[in-house]
Design a protein around this nucleic acid. Structure first.
Length: 193
DNA sequence: GAGTAGATCGGCT
DNA sequence: GCCGATCTACTCG
């Protein structure tokens, strides 16, 4: 499958892109390890300036979230709870801090490598369900922050067409502090699989 | 199966 | 100092 072009990420509606990312394929090639990756099956949109759940709410800019202010099509990786790397896809244009959290992946490539990184069995159903697990399984760390998503070691390819009836929509996870914005239906899940 | 504590560190009130 | 876009292991029933 061809790599997703930068124009895909530069659309201004981050919520729409979050939905469209379902079914796309995320891969990593870390060091001498085989390619690891799979199908994106859960995403959450974070809409910078006007979203209280977003690190860049009200254009708040810190060394940590600098990546969100870059042109769409790069990775924003940050440390959460002192121990987990979380991967986001930056969208929109320069200075517009939009990002999409990748919450889960259906693994299709490099299963053995993923299982080894996760210290789990090959057939463990929870191999990459959860944003911290995705990064651990694919070997993504903060060293990948601000990297392009169009080439090694970290990239996203086109996938099968996803129809509306396969998409489940709900509220976002773990952001109760965001008040009313915690109720926004900005979480997208690929059904069944 | 549900509920809880502990790990662990960067960014901010 | 406190708490977070989390995960795991361990308890209790």
């Amino acid at each position: 499958m061809p790599v997703l072009s930068p124009t895909f990420y530069q659309h201004e509606d981050v919520v729409l892109i979050a939905k469209q990312l379902l079914g796309k394929k995320l891969y990593t090639k870390i060091g001498s390890d085989p390619i690891t990756g799979g199908i994106i099956s859960e995403t959450e949109a974070y809409r910078g300036p006007d979203d209280k759940a977003c690190h860049a709410y009200n254009y708040r800019r810190t060394p940590r979230n600098e990546a969100m202010f870059l042109e769409g099509g790069v990775a924003y990786v940050y440390l959460c709870y002192g121990m987990h790397n979380l991967l986001n896809v930056v969208t929109g244009h320069e200075e517009i801090p939009h990002a999409i959290l990748i919450r889960s992946i259906i693994p299709t490539h490099g299963l053995e490598t993923i299982a080894r990184r996760r210290k789990k069995n090959l057939n463990d159903p929870s191999l990459m369900i959860g944003p911290g697990k995705v990064c651990q399984g694919l070997g993504i760390t903060r060293s990948h922050n601000e990297m392009s998503l169009t080439r090694e070691p970290l990239w996203i390819e086109e996938g099968e067409e996803i129809t509306e009836d396969k998409i489940e929509i709900s509220t976002r996870i773990g952001i109760a502090y965001a008040g009313e914005d915690a109720l926004l239906p900005w979480r997208f899940i690929l059904k069944c699989s």
